[in-house]
Simulated assay, not measured.
Amino acid sequence: MEPFHVNGKMDGKKLASAIAVPVLGGAAVGWLANRDAQKKFQRLEKPGFAPPPAAFPIAWNILYATMGFARYRAGMRKRDKGMEDSFPSYDVQLGLNFLWSFLFFRWRLRGTALVEMTILLGAIALTAERFYKEDKAAGMLMAPYMGWVLYALALNAAIWKKNDWK
């Protein structure tokens, strides 16, 4: 089985677009939301389970590419069924994902970011379920993203507690 082929077909433009939207969108949001925020972030008290700062861009690029690939696979299955390949839950979770960076880094609303991330986790789970109905591999590809966001939720909560609850 070739992973980029769904039902024996591959659409290179759809694949590139599905991956480019979250990867490039995430890069743009990261640049806009995190400008000048990294120095302030480094000064925050963080829990012992916080990863080194270099881990974040590596992890997010992999996760964005993986979620885009999942979107491509699920969309190709849906399109093969003669249906429109839209997934509103995917669009919502991606928008929430991008919003979180502004809440946490740019606007320093860490409590609000925590609540928003909880909603994001639900939107990811819903998207994974919808993808799984169309293509089991697409649904499973969302699992690492869900795991990372769950970890990020704990990290967000710990940073908020250590810094803003004083």
Rank of each mutant, 00 (worst) to 15 (best):
M1R: 13
M1S: 12
E2Y: 08
E2C: 04
P3N: 00
P3E: 00
N7M: 00
N7G: 01
G8D: 01
G12I: 07
K14D: 08
L15P: 07
A16Q: 01
A16K: 01
A18M: 09
A20I: 07
P22G: 07
V23N: 08
G26A: 07
G26K: 05
A27N: 02
V29T: 14
A33H: 04
N34V: 15
D36R: 07
K39E: 15
K40P: 04
L44H: 06
P47K: 03
P53A: 07
P53K: 10
A54Q: 09
A55S: 11
P57H: 04
A59T: 11
W60C: 13
N61E: 00
L63A: 07
Y64T: 01
Y64W: 06
A65M: 06
M67R: 13
M67Y: 05
F69W: 09
R73D: 09
A74N: 08
K81S: 02
M83Y: 12
M83H: 09
S86L: 09
P88M: 02
Q93H: 06
L94M: 14
L96R: 07
L96P: 05
F98C: 11
L99K: 07
W100P: 03
S101T: 13
S101H: 10
L103Y: 06
R106N: 06
R106W: 03
W107P: 10
W107Y: 15
T118C: 12
T118V: 11
L120S: 09
L121Y: 10
G122R: 03
G122F: 10
A123S: 15
I124Q: 04
A128S: 11
E129A: 15
F131R: 08
Y132Q: 08
E134Y: 03
E134D: 13
D135H: 10
A137Y: 04
A137N: 10
A137F: 05
A138N: 04
G139T: 01
M140P: 00
L141V: 05
M142H: 10
A143D: 05
P144F: 04
M146C: 09
W148Y: 04
W148Q: 05
Y151M: 03
A152D: 08
L153D: 15
A154D: 06
L155C: 00
N156D: 15
A158S: 14
I159N: 01
W160H: 12
W160A: 13
N163S: 07
D164P: 08
D164Y: 12
W165H: 10
